[in-house]
Design a protein around this nucleic acid. Structure first.
Length: 804
RNA sequence: GCCGGUGUGGCGGAAUGGCAGACGCAAGGGACUUAAAAUCCCUCGUCCGAAAGGACGUGCGGGUUCGACCCCCGCCACCGGCACCA
């Protein structure tokens, strides 16, 4: 459909060239002005090009940044490329093109698409995570983590993707399949590099109190970290030596522990193998469990499975009862100690398990009916059948039991976190090489800082291996090196880092992107950090956002960065859905291409629609018709040039003009872009009703609209004969006094029902309303012959008279 | 199952204790035009009514309040996240 109106193609090209050539939006190196650092999640340059959803976040922060510049701030709004990653590698494998070549091509495409949309990025500060000059510092941070005991290698059950042949972080497994390739994920034991994020669990939790993140992000992070308080205690074993250690949040129910459960991967099963009488049965169960991911284990939870370990039993430390030990996959090896004491009377899962296998149950908290269900209330219950705890409330009993356990040396107070350490290795080519060497004499030898970056060897052998080794393992020239310490023939680590590595500190590099002495200078970091406003998707709340806070806090602790938190404010945008209300995807055929949209209605209209389509934090379906409506609005704005009469603010529109400045200013700061735009539309409608606009009014409107639609407003600024650029102007301010009107319309209600609308003086207050309003004939007619019980007046809003 | 979010016209949404439906889309009517497009103007929640006007109306059921889309209690549906987390 051909749309007429202003020539957006020529105008947008013109201004993009001017901005680019004159470097209008490069952050100032002069630090005397106050700074403002706006950040978007840097894109992964996929082969599909920019998605129609990208502009939503980008435009929002572009608006904030452009407005902040007009308010006198030195704004940093950088862009870069999160370019390591599996899709690129997979594409390279499939099409026999080197990942580096694919990446370079994709970045060029993304850059030109972003420029086409007119974002005010500082292109002088572009970063690329695959550039050795960048990942040199990613590797440097890894060495620091290693040096500080936060990186370690561990043999542990990991999620093994049967498609990618790599270990995945738990966080990367979605619905039991690999987040990236969709293949089933199984459990497998492998030696992996781990990062001890759990050491920062409490700091990550506490830090949330100091930042301005939207509440649901904080809640999600807190839940993810999952702090719980309880006790860790030992159950002695009968039939063999040793003890079984468990974590419990309900030490008060210890008298009710009637059996124990260990996870299928629990070391007890190996250590006590010679005592266990039914090893075959247990081995079969272990094998079955290994095939299931955590998700499947939980999905099948309606029918609990398990095997009793015969030959060893446990002794309840408070009453000396000998109780059975079971193996079941409803207990996870990765949480707590991988073993539990089961209190079926007061835990739903234990209850279901005990019912299925006919295990005994002892009520130790009175208040429920354990014949019907587990009684889990912790507020009102009173302890029974529990020796010295009898008669206590749950909270009191918990404390008393912990004291007892500590006194008797059975157990200790313990805080546990749901958060698990971060599986950091990938058996892939397209990632940062982990800079360590394995020496037969010295063990793990880190590279020296001056030997960084350890570059990815340029090779065509980037195919994954069936053995699960990294492709780098096959490159003998690269792998075989002398030990830096003793000179003995050694081998390089061949695993690479996950994509999350490069994105965990990129916001630091933006402050000083060309520094080849340190990741960024103290001077630049102290000026720019923290990021003032970071917007991104909810899907990154628990992965990227938590990982980068962890790295940042670590860097703070070792004195590399000046702030304990990286981001002061975090907001989130809603997804852009297809026109059918479904998630956009190639297979559904509902994908909208930004190139097509810009071609038809221009970048300004696209930006405008992205912000107008609905509440910023909600998912909204795309509507091509709706986007055209925004183009129509810009055409109406363009034609205002022909309607200019007079210079200063006109009396007729004075209140409207100031109201618009106020509304737009406040709504932009609150991310209520849709209502800010609606206000400008109403203002333009009012101008059309009046038939003319003054020069000052038009200038103000253009400034307000500029952050959303920068090209058309720059052009009109010039067209109406103004000097300089609109982006150099200062943001309009409103005058509270000018908002005042003499008269205002109020609603008149009788018993809460709307009866009429009335113009009254704005000055009318609660005190004088009754004597002014009651004698009015319109009001009198409504109250005729009735008794007035109550008179409610809200200035400027309404009058409600309660009558009988 | 747990946690979070959402529920308002034909559609996207607005109103966070005070006139429900701003703004936009779609639709219908009109003007301009040889005609169409574009543009401009009007109408546009449902029901009753010729109209004036009235009744009903924000997922459902209760409650608080002079007054509830908004707050409280109990449900339902959809979306998202997490999950035998002991």
């Amino acid at each position: 459909m051909a749309t007429k109106g202003y020539d957006f193609t020529a105008i947008e090209k013109k201004w993009q060239t001017i901005w680019d050539e004159q470097k209008c939006f490069c952050a100032d190196h002069d630090h005397s002005k106050p700074k403002y650092y706006t950040l978007i999640e840097f894109p992964y340059p996929s082969g599909a090009g920019l998605h129609v959803g990208h502009p939503r976040s980008n435009t929002a922060m572009d608006i904030i940044g452009r407005k902040k510049r007009m308010e006198g701030y030195n704004v940093l709004f950088p862009i870069g490329w999160d370019a390591f990653g599996l899709p690129t590698e997979n594409f390279a494998i499939k099409n026999h093109v080197h990942p580096a070549a694919v990446t370079a091509k994709n970045i060029d495409r993304f850059r030109s698409q972003l420029k086409m949309l007119g974002f005010a990025f500082d292109y002088d500060r572009e970063v690329d995570t695959t550039d050795p000059a960048y990942y040199r510092w990613t590797q440097w941070i890894f060495l620091k983590l290693l040096e500080n005991g936060l990186a370690y290698k561990a043999e542990m059950p990991i999620n093994w993707c049967t498609g990618c042949k790599v270990g995945l972080a738990n966080e990367e497994v979605v619905d039991g399949v690999c987040e990236r390739c969709g293949s089933p994920v199984v459990r497998r034991v492998k030696s992996q590099w781990m990062l001890r994020i759990t050491a920062y669990a409490q700091k990550l939790l506490d830090g949330l109190d100091q930042v301005d993140f939207i509440e649901k992000v904080k809640t999600q992070q807190r839940n993810w970290i999952g702090r719980s308080e309880g006790a860790e205690l030992d159950f002695k074993l009968s039939g063999c030596k040793g003890a079984l250690r468990v974590f419990t949040t309900r030490p008060d129910t210890l008298f009710g522990a009637t059996y124990m459960v260990v996870s299928p991967e629990h070391p007890l099963l190996r250590e006590q193998a010679d005592k266990i009488e039914n090893l075959d049965e247990i081995a079969a169960y272990q094998q079955e469990a290994a095939r299931k991911s955590d998700f499947e284990r939980t999905e099948l939870n309606k029918d609990k499975t398990g095997v009793e370990i015969r030959g060893i039993r446990a002794i309840n430390p408070v009453n000396g009862n000998e109780i059975p030990i079971w193996v079941s996959d409803y207990v996870l090896v990765s949480y707590g100690t991988g073993a539990i004491m089961a209190v079926p009377a007061h835990d739903e899962r234990d209850y279901a398990f005990a019912r299925k296998f006919g295990l005994p149950m002892v009520e130790v908290v009175a208040g429920g009916d354990i014949e019907k269900e587990a009684y889990t209330d912790i507020a009102d219950g009173v302890l029974v059948n529990s020796g010295f705890l009898n008669g206590m409330k749950v909270k009191e009993a918990k404390a008393a039991m912990i004291d007892y356990l500590e006194k008797e040396g059975i157990g200790t107070r313990k805080i546990n976190y749901k958060l698990r350490d971060w599986v950091f290795s990938r058996q892939r080519y397209w990632g940062e090489p982990i800079p360590v060497i394995w020496c037969p004499n010295c063990g793990c030898v880190p590279l020296k800082e001056e030997d960084l970056p350890l570059e990815l060897p340029k090779t065509d052998h980037y195919m994954p291996t069936d053995t699960g080794e990294s492709p780098l393992a096959l490159m003998e020239d690269w792998v075989n090196v002398p030990c830096p310490k003793c000179g003995a023939p050694s081998k390089r680590e061949t695993d690479t880092m996950p994509q999350w590595a490069g994105s965990s500190w990129y916001f630091l590099r933006y402050t000083d992107p060309h520094n080849d002495k340190e990741l960024a200078s103290q001077e630049e970091l102290s000026y720019w950090m923290p990021v003032d406003w970071y917007n991104g998707g909810m899907e990154h709340t628990t992965l990227h956002l938590l990982y980068s806070r962890f790295w940042h806090k670590f860097l703070y602790d070792i004195g590399v960065v000046p702030t304990p938190e990286p981001y002061q404010r975090r907001t989130s945008h809603g997804m852009v859905l297809g026109a059918d209300g479904q998630k956009m995807s190639k297979s559904r055929g509902n994908v909208v291409n930004p190139d097509d949209v810009v071609h038809e209605i221009g970048a300004d209209a696209f930006r405008l629609y992205s912000m107008f389509m609905g509440a910023f934090d909600q998912a909204i379906p795309w509507s091509t018709q709706g986007a055209r409506g925004c183009k129509r609005f810009l055409d109406r704005v363009w034609k205002l040039q022909e309607m200019v009469k007079g210079s200063e603010y006109s009396k007729e529109l004075l209140a409207d003009t100031h109201q618009t400045i106020k509304k737009v200013t406040e709504d932009f700061d609150r991310m209520k872009f849709n209502t800010a735009i609606a206000q400008m539309m109403s203002y333009v409608n009012a101008v059309y009703d009046k038939g003319s606009i003054t020069k000052e009014e038009l200038k103000t409107l253009l400034k307000l609209l500029y952050p959303v639609a920068p090209h058309i407003t720059e052009e009109m600024w010039q067209e109406i004969g103004e000097k300089g650029y609109i982006h150099e102007q200062s943001w309009p301010v409103y005058d509270e006094n000018a908002l005042a009107r003499d008269e205002t319309e109020i609603a008149v209600q009788i018993n809460g029902k709307l009866r009429l609308r009335l113009m009254v003086p704005t000055s009318l207050t609660r005190e004088n309303a009754e004597e002014y309003l009651l004698p009015k004939p319109e009001v009198k007619a409504l109250t005729e012959g009735k008794t007035i019980l109550k008179f409610v007046f809200i200035p400027g809003r309404l009058l409600n008279i309660v009558v009988k």
